[in-house]
Amino acid sequence: MKKLINEPADVVSEALLGIEAAHPELKIDHASKVIYRGDAPVSGKVALISGGGSGHEPLHGGFVGPGMLDAACAGEMFTSPVPEQMLTATKAVDGGAGVVHIVKNYTGDVMNFEMAAELAAAEAGIDVVSVVTDDDVAVQDSLYTAGRRGVGVTVILEKIVGAAAEQGRPLAEVADIAKLVNANGRSMGMALTSCTVPAAGKPTFELAEDEMEIGIGIHGEPGRRRVPLAPAKEIAEMLVEPILSDLPFTSGDPVIAFVNGMGGTPLIELYLMYNEVARILGGHGVGIARSLVGPYITSLEMAGCSVTLVKATDDLLALWDAPVNTPALRWGV
């Protein structure tokens, strides 16, 4: 294992010290491992909280700030944060208009956020609405799985819903927009290499030089199938076609297209992939209204990418374009 770390056990807490040093506009609660926007709580505004295991940076801490999240709770590496963290954050950001919890659909995340929401209601009477993202088409949504994983849509959702909250829209409307974005979004990912959790010290799985894994999540867990390595244009087909067959796009529907890097793939390859994705979408008559390219929801140093498509409306596009000022996404400010 070659990593820029001191001790494996200190990676999360020392990264939080770095975020604090680099971003004085944020507030960090080191004991609870929560990142807050500097002016939280914002009175009268619906507050947005997300969180999850660490190792997916910039998700979620890099998306804290005006126009996006009010707080992000950092768990241990690839491990959901605990209820106390979300409870602390919920009490700290509540500006009297209610709180939305944005939860990626993983068994642990759902359970810990659920316990936190129960405690927030019981201890402080705070109105919490939980929205679960489950956009990964690699997982069959059936009684026989934990349901689809929350992946790339989470980034798009946090941006759009953050803008809606910033505009002062009420809790029910903000939560409905979040549910709409999730319902309109689908993702599919692939890996060229595994990743190494610092405390484990060795790669979570092994992939040969000439193999790739299709249908991976964001925790170094193996995917649906292992296939021989192929050119980018074929990989793009393997990612985009399952999305299009799962979420029928009518010709002319505007979409937000997001090509995400898993952490170890350079931007030049992501743009190459974006070109392939755009070509396939063009062939289906799907118009790209907005794009996002880069490593935004990662799996440590895993090489690979994911593709996310969100069917947009004029309102969703206007919210996407609204100003945002966070460490990882910043425009219009």
């Binding site: 605990v82 993983y106 316990m115």
Partner: peptide
């Protein structure tokens, strides 16, 4: 355990 483990194992 709820406050130290995280993941699914902590709540369970």
């Amino acid at each position: 355990l709820v406050s130290a483990v995280g993941g699914a194992s902590g709540p369970l």
